[in-house]
């Protein structure tokens, strides 16, 4: 079993580590880096709870090997708020509409919708549902999540920043 030196950026911080070939990115983030906001729900790529941004793109971290993150920039839910104790506009919109209950799928939902809003300032309801279509939630029936993302889009537009920058600002 090969071991590999990797260097990467997590939530803006540059780090390096030695990882076994078979270690998945989600296990690496959670167990080695103790970034436990990203959750493992199914470990076979269906539920989306483990979603993270890899070089700006939302991916399943259970289907990505840690070694593959070498040289990459990773953003997890812990990296979405402007500073500790605060929430970004998207997160705050989730709070406003109560877009979660148990919270287990929430980080994946935030990652998926963050990526949507970075690319699309005025998503339709269908586009919102498509963006979170790969993230299963068992609590909410999705309604308050869809409402939250629409609310966040509206607030981000109102913030007089292009959605991309405003979304980046949230980190």
């Amino acid at each position: 079993m090969s071991q590999h030196e990797i260097t990467f950026t997590v939530n803006g911080e540059s780090q390096s580590a030695t990882v076994a070939a078979r270690l998945t990115l989600v296990d690496f983030l959670r167990d080695a880096l103790r970034l436990t906001g990203t959750h493992a729900g199914c470990e076979h790529g269906v539920c989306g709870a483990c979603s993270v941004l890899l070089d700006g793109v939302p991916v399943r971290s259970c289907l990505t090997l840690a070694v593959q993150a070498d040289g990459s920039e990773i953003v997890t839910v812990e990296g979405l708020a402007p500073e500790p104790g605060t929430l970004g506009i998207l997160q705050d919109s989730f709070w406003e509409t109560h877009a979660l209950q148990c919270g287990f799928c929430t980080s994946g939902m935030l990652i998926a919708s963050h990526a949507l809003l970075a690319a699309n300032a005025s998503p339709t309801e269908d586009e919102i549902r498509e963006a979170i279509g790969g993230n299963l939630c068992r609590c909410t029936g999705y309604k308050q999540i869809v409402d939250a993302i629409a609310l966040a889009a509206e607030r981000l537009r109102g913030s007089n920043l292009p959605a991309k920058e405003a979304a980046d600002d949230e980190r």
Partner: peptide, 9 residues
């Protein structure tokens, strides 16, 4: 094919 996240990879 799949979802946004799986198509991204």
């Amino acid at each position: 094919v799949g979802h946004v996240q799986t198509r991204n990879r």
